[in-house]
Nucleic acid binder design. Structure first.
Length: 420
RNA sequence: GUGGGCGUAGCUCAGCUGGUAGAGCACUGGCUUGUGGUGCCGGUGGUCGCGGGUUCGAGUCCCGUCGCUCACCCCA
């Protein structure tokens, strides 16, 4: 038994799953970069106040799920539970909002929430997120959503659904909220649900319990109470998605867990995650930057759960990391041959070819099994005969045939096989 | 924070009503004195999570404890 274990709720990704994880993360980042989003690297912990004010005191994330502690200087810091607040802080701090708008950024990394772990829900979760800051152009909303959609599809996923709605803004939401609260107050709800109705009445509409769903079936919906501006904005977003060919479902009961969302909100849901369903989500946050002390600029973004994306791929039977871990595998017979192959490996790597070889001193047959297991297309076999002649056997592991070439011709020979 | 399930070889697991541990995969040697993907034979590897109790005897029963896991809640 090991002396130490990973902290509760924190997943380790070891080969081969780690390759799938990396492929998912890199694929999602690449989708953002194709739309012009630039990388931003931020600290994983911030001043506790940033999240309390940015994410919202009333949210579950802030009220009971934060990893908060005092550092040695007595400052209260918190491991970031989400990405947007930190991005806003950095944008303000570095004056990125004073240049050309929108500011388009992409980030990836770990986030932390102190929850009871279960399938698809971890205390350390990995996200890829983007933010487009400074404009409330609905075409930007559509782009952000399309980046996520295209990111998932580029990985080979197709079994997800996009839910979308508008949460209104400071003009129309307060009046709707009162109306909804009045409606909920008349229902026979349990005490915990009543409290939620006070703090965040929208959340009640999203209750999973069938009996509650029945009660709120006739509840007033934000979608029917949008002001003219929000309504127009939302329809433009929908039109943009249609133009981009992004399939979507209007879900007026969609709710997000963070306070800062306004207008457009969306969530990508997938059935393969156990009790969880969201693989990514986001929305517009037009009041957040001002809330954090910056100028009054709008923004929109998403966060995609990389852990959940990997689970979704597994559920769909999608192979995220295809191909072998190397292109070429060296099989030396004897110490002298190994020394030569090490040199050959160096040349091949310098030529951009991925190479591994059988280290230690293993039987030829075992080394060949390793070559096979590595997924290499080509094996290089070097024994005493070739050593004496200054040659090496180049074997095509798929076709099964092989030829002997001089050491000088190895790179060219291998390249030919890999391209063929 | 509240419940359920489970902890036996590196991995996936078997082990019925208690008699001091097994399979497959993986790793490794050989069959084939220099060649993988399918075959055959052998080998390495386990204080049965930990502690206590019942018993002549506990992986197997009882209690406790730690851990993992699934679900509620919530969300990525």
């Amino acid at each position: 038994m090991p002396d130490f274990y990973a902290p509760k709720g924190v997943p380790d990704y070891v080969p081969p799953v780690s390759r799938q994880f990396a492929a998912a993360r890199n694929g999602l980042i690449a989708a953002a970069e194709r739309a012009g989003y630039q990388p931003i690297e931020l600290p994983v912990f911030e001043d506790t106040g940033l999240f309390a004010r940015g994410v919202g005191e009333s949210t579950d994330v802030v009220s009971k799920e934060m990893y908060t502690f005092a550092d040695r200087g007595g400052r209260s810091v918190t491991l970031r539970p989400e990405g947007t607040a930190g991005v806003m802080r950095a944008v303000i701090e570095h004056g990125l909002d004073r240049g050309a708008l929108p500011v388009k950024l992409v980030y990836a990394g770990p986030f932390f929430r102190y929850e009871r772990p279960q399938a698809g829900r971890y205390r350390q979760l990995q996200q890829v997120g983007i933010e487009a800051i400074g404009l409330d152009d609905p075409a930007l909303d559509a782009e952000v959503i399309a980046v996520a959609d295209e990111g998932f599809r580029s990985l080979g996923l197709s079994g997800f659904r996009l839910d979308i709605t508008s949460l209104g803004d400071a003009n129309c939401r307060p009046a709707y909220r009162e109306k909804l609260q009045a409606f909920l107050a008349a229902l026979p709800l349990d005490e915990a649900t009543r409290e939620r109705a006070e703090v965040n009445p929208l959340r009640v509409l999203d209750d999973k319990r069938p009996e509650v769903q029945a009660l709120v079936a006739d509840a007033p919906l934000m979608a029917d109470h949008l002001c003219a501006e929000c309504s127009e904005h939302f329809e433009s977003v929908i039109a943009g998605l249609d133009a981009l060919g992004v399939a979507h479902v209007r879900n007026p009961r969609l709710v997000r867990g963070l306070d800062y969302y306004t207008k457009t909100t969306f969530e990508f849901v997938h059935p393969g995650l156990g009790a969880q369903s969201g693989i990514g989500g986001g929305g517009r946050y037009d009041g957040l930057m001002a809330q954090l002390g910056g100028q009054s600029l709008s923004g929109i973004g998403f966060g995609i759960g990389v852990d959940r994306t990997v689970l979704a791929a597994k559920a769909e039977g999608v192979e995220l990391a295809t191909g072998g871990r190397v292109d070429v595998y060296g099989v030396p017979m004897g110490a002298e041959a190994k020394a030569v192959l090490v040199g050959v490996a160096g040349k091949l790597r310098a030529a951009g070819i991925r190479v591994d070889l059988a280290y230690g001193s293993r039987a030829l047959k075992t080394a060949m099994k390793s070559a096979d297991a590595s997924g290499a297309r080509v094996a290089l076999v070097l024994g005493d005969r070739e050593l004496a002649a200054g040659e090496v056997v180049v074997k095509d592991m798929v076709a099964g045939d092989q030829q002997t070439v001089t050491l000088d011709a190895v790179v060219e020979s291998v390249r030919g096989l890999l391209q063929g």
